[in-house]
Amino acid sequence: MVIVKRKELSFAERLYLPEIFRALSLTFRNMFQREITRQYPEEPLPKTEVTRGQPRLVELEEGSLACVSCGLCEAACPAYAITIDGGETENFIEREPKLFEIDMLRCILCGFCEEACPKDAIFMSDELELAGFTRKGLVYGIDKLRRPRAALQKRIDYVYRINDRWRNSSSTH
């Protein structure tokens, strides 16, 4: 048991009024301080490589997706936001996504898909804004998700760097 000795308050302190006036003077002085608000759409926050925006699919130089629709991101997604249907192609990698949908309303930007992907095909981009008029319109298909690799390069480099210990000669490539 701990006995806490309360401080004996003086009359002025018990009156509470001096403290009120001190508080009032503080807020009054604060009125003339500089604002720290950032005017968001005009002054966006700086985006760093750590920024986890919406997930995007990597488009390779030859124009095809890096994704092979293995479904690991779909399985890893805690919000069940991803739906993939695969199909066959004539490429060397025989499988490609015919349907790749991320329900952006469900997506919680956790980055599990990025972590799960064995093909470095999905990365968290720095795109943050999301608005739409219909729920359907915010279910993004391949056409809205694909980004050239160069656009995601900053994040890709970052992920490679922090995952270096997993990535060595015997890795996927």
Partner: peptide
């Protein structure tokens, strides 16, 4: 069935 579905789905 080739590439139609992941079996866990």
């Amino acid at each position: 069935f080739r590439f139609q579905a992941r079996v866990w789905n």
